[in-house]
Write a protein that binds this DNA or RNA. Structure first.
Lengths: 126, 126
DNA sequence: CTTGACCTTGACGTTGACGTCAACGATTAG
DNA sequence: CTAATCGTTGACGTCAACGTCAAGGTCAAG
């Protein structure tokens, strides 16, 4: 299939697909007229990339998963490099959550100081 | 005092101060030679801006606080506009925390699937 | 033949808060 | 007088993941 169809089926823009190729994540064969040619395995790659992106991974983070898939594995997380990225991202997310919780406490304290009673109206647990 | 001293005392770069001025957050008087001239109240403004920035506010978010201070109030959060920003930011932070918790669960699930037992090694509560 | 839908590469725009020159003027110490 | 240190106004660079033209090539249908 060509880039337009892959884009439609994967739910991304053609620009994104060309960008992925430029970043070395999605190499494309070319047909005689210069058009990029893709197959089902490429769709799988894009799907993997997208699902990683939606959980906050960067394209660089996605690289090991893509390479794992291209190496013939059934899943992108079947390789130790991918698992390592998972662990690193988990730590990053935990750090971000801690930072946000700290900020939330700061802002809530300031808010209650400036406007007592206001804080009661919101909450993470809500 | 001039821009260099204010920068040192506030712990920011002169570039940042000029940027704040450009954004209308820190208007500066000019001495006869064209140099920016600041006083203690300006230091207070910068301090306010910085403390807001460190809890994740944008310069635009900081605007009401700065205007509140310039209006003669003892604190930047003494005005209803500031309080409103606090509430909005609190909601934003809560939303971000929810998003991150969702991502954390996703990644943790993927990790445990790819490498059972790995998840046990980390945690937000740690 | 011509339209229209598809494809190509190249290159600039977006966002926030500055960093980092460049090229120049002002002030002060020696 | 001169160097050192400060100040000034542009204006481009940074970072990620594309969006959005521009200018053109390709191909099937009518």
């Amino acid at each position: 299939m060509r880039i337009g169809e892959l884009a439609r089926r994967a739910g991304v823009s053609t620009r994104a697909l060309r960008y992925y190729e430029q970043q070395g994540l999605l190499p494309a064969r070319r047909s005689s007229n210069g058009y990029r040619e893709y197959d089902e395995s490429d769709l799988k790659l894009v799907t993997e990339i997208r699902s990683l992106i939606t959980v906050g991974f960067t394209l660089d983070d996605a690289r090991p998963f893509v390479e794992c898939l291209r190496a013939g594995n059934h899943a992108g997380n079947a390789c130790p490099e991918s698992v390592e990225v998972y662990r690193r991202k988990l730590a990053e997310i935990d750090e971000q959550i801690r930072t946000l919780l700290g900020r939330r406490a700061e802002v809530a304290a300031q808010l209650s100081e400036a406007c007592p009673g206001c804080v009661l109206k919101t909450g993470v647990t809500t």
